[in-house]
Computed example of a mutant assay.
Amino acid sequence: MPDDWLAANRANWDGRVPVHVASEFYDVDGFVAGGEPLRDFELAEVGDVKGKSLLHLQCHFGQDTLSWARHGATVTGLDFSRPAVEAATGLAGRIGADTARFVVSDVYDAVSALDGRRFDIVYTGLGALCWLPDLTRWARTAAALVAPGGFLYLAEFHPFADVLAEDGRTVEYDYFHNEATVWDDPSTYTDGELAPTAPAVTVEWQHGLGEVVSALVAAGLRIEFLHEHDFTVFARFPVLEHHGVFRFPEGRPRVPLMYSLRASKPA
Rank of each mutant, 00 (worst) to 15 (best):
A128K: 04
P186V: 02
N178E: 15
F248K: 12
F248M: 11
Y173N: 15
T197L: 08
G251A: 07
L126Q: 13
I121W: 07
N12D: 07
P186Y: 04
L6F: 01
W138G: 03
A128S: 14
V75F: 06
R262I: 04
L55I: 02
R222Q: 14
K50E: 13
Y108C: 09
V233K: 06
V245Y: 10
L154W: 07
G208N: 10
D98P: 00
A92S: 12
P2E: 02
S53F: 08
H207S: 07
A22S: 09
A128M: 01
S187C: 03
Y123C: 11
G150N: 08
D185F: 01
L216A: 05
H227E: 13
D162G: 10
E156F: 03
T197H: 13
L38V: 00
L55H: 05
D40A: 15
L132T: 02
D48P: 01
E86Y: 01
S264V: 05
D79Q: 11
P186R: 02
I121Y: 09
H229W: 13
D184L: 00
D48Q: 03
E172M: 10
C130I: 12
L43S: 11
A161W: 07
F31L: 06
T76N: 09
D79A: 10
Q206A: 12
F160T: 11
H158N: 09
L257G: 02
N12Q: 11
H229F: 11
A22P: 02
T170R: 15
D98K: 14
H56A: 08
R101W: 00
E42Y: 00
S264A: 15
L154A: 09
H243I: 01
G127Q: 05
E86V: 12
T124F: 00
L257Q: 03
A263G: 07
T202L: 04
F157E: 10
W131L: 03
A69G: 13
V163F: 07
W183T: 11
A142I: 04
L152I: 01
W5K: 03
M1F: 09
T202I: 03
T181G: 00
V171P: 10
R222G: 09
A161D: 08
A22M: 00
E45Y: 01
V212Y: 05
A165C: 14
H242W: 04
P2R: 06
Y173E: 12
K52R: 15
T141V: 08
D174P: 04
H227D: 14
R101N: 09
G72A: 06
L55E: 04
R10H: 02
A147Q: 12
